[in-house]
Amino acid sequence: MNELTVSRGEATLRWVLMLLASAVVLGPLLWQLSTALKGPGESTTGFLSGLVPSDPTLDNFTTAFTQIPLAGYLLNSAGIAALGVTTNLLLATLTGYALARIPFRGRNLYMAALLATAALPFEVILVSTLLVTRNLGLQDTLLGVVLPQAVSITSIFVMRQAFRAIPDELEEAATIDGAGPVRTFLGIMLPNAKGSLAVVTVLGFLDSWDHFIWPLVVLSSPDKYPVNVGVQYLSGAFSADQRVISAAALVVIVPPLLVYLLLQRHVFSGLAGGALKG
């Protein structure tokens, strides 16, 4: 009986903790959605009393798209994200494979140096990166936004761990069957690391989509701004109207949510598969 009471107590505690975590995560999002759907006469300062709009409207979304070129900003972000995901996938996969499966002198030292630099915020190298980008003639270009952060160290580490988790016997069997390095990499290694590839895809997309400081510094033409930078114009034009700003912010977070929802099954399998092997 005591064990049953303890079991029920643990279950109740877990449910309470999950509800609290859900409230912390979903509460701001629901409040933002509520604000975006409110009409001009409704208050945006109340809490529980004003959570449900009395007269829901989509006019705030229409205003956000008409007052600033929000669609163009979204296209710019989509282009930056596509380039960012491509470069991150390619470079992280090749680098992770070399660090995991190709023995060379100083391999562990190189990986340690990469992980050490991951602790440095991008702001530390912002000025030097801007000077290099300017000297290469990439300032005020979308390519200049992508290349300085073309690959993340986290993605390299994820792919390294994924390739290390693949049994050596698979690679040896492919070699015995006459497969060369390229065929082994494409036919054996990549299919067995597809979960980690999904993780790197999501990480690359989120990182590219969330760019703010670097595009703001390197781009001088407003028509090339990504959506995170472009939406800031609403803060000036509608500083007192939180409804329009909330509507635009909701539009901004939709693509990352869709990418994650589409790949979440592969993301979890990738994190559980190879990311824990030392």
Rank of each mutant, 00 (worst) to 15 (best):
G204Q: 07
Y225C: 10
D223L: 00
V202H: 07
E169L: 08
G187H: 11
R160S: 11
R164K: 06
N192T: 09
I176T: 09
F212Y: 15
I188A: 09
A173I: 01
I176M: 15
A165M: 02
V200E: 08
S220L: 02
D207F: 10
R183G: 10
V182H: 02
D168E: 12
S155A: 15
A162L: 01
I153M: 01
M159D: 02
D168M: 01
L219K: 01
P181E: 13
L216V: 06
G230R: 04
A174P: 08
W209G: 13
T201L: 13
L203D: 14
I166P: 06
I153R: 00
S196P: 07
F205I: 02
F212Q: 03
G178H: 07
Q149W: 08
L170Y: 15
V218C: 03
R164A: 10
W214Q: 10
G204T: 05
V227M: 04
G195L: 11
S152N: 03
L170V: 11
V158I: 15
Q161F: 00
S155W: 03
L216N: 12
Y225N: 15
G230E: 13
F163S: 05
E169S: 15
T201I: 11
V218R: 00
I156N: 08
P222C: 09
R183V: 13
K224D: 03
A193Y: 04
P181L: 10
I153L: 02
S220R: 01
S152H: 01
S152K: 00
E169C: 03
I213L: 14
P215I: 05
P148S: 14
V227N: 06
Q161R: 03
D223M: 00
P215R: 05
K194Y: 06
H211N: 08
L206V: 14
I213K: 00
F157K: 05
G230N: 10
S196Q: 11
T154S: 09
L206M: 13
Y225V: 11
E169D: 15
I188M: 11
A174F: 07
I188S: 06
H211G: 12
D223R: 02
E172K: 00
E169I: 08
W214D: 13
G230S: 10
D177Y: 03
S152G: 14
D168I: 00
F185S: 06
F185A: 06
L197E: 06
A165F: 01
P181Y: 05
T175L: 05
V151I: 04
L186P: 01
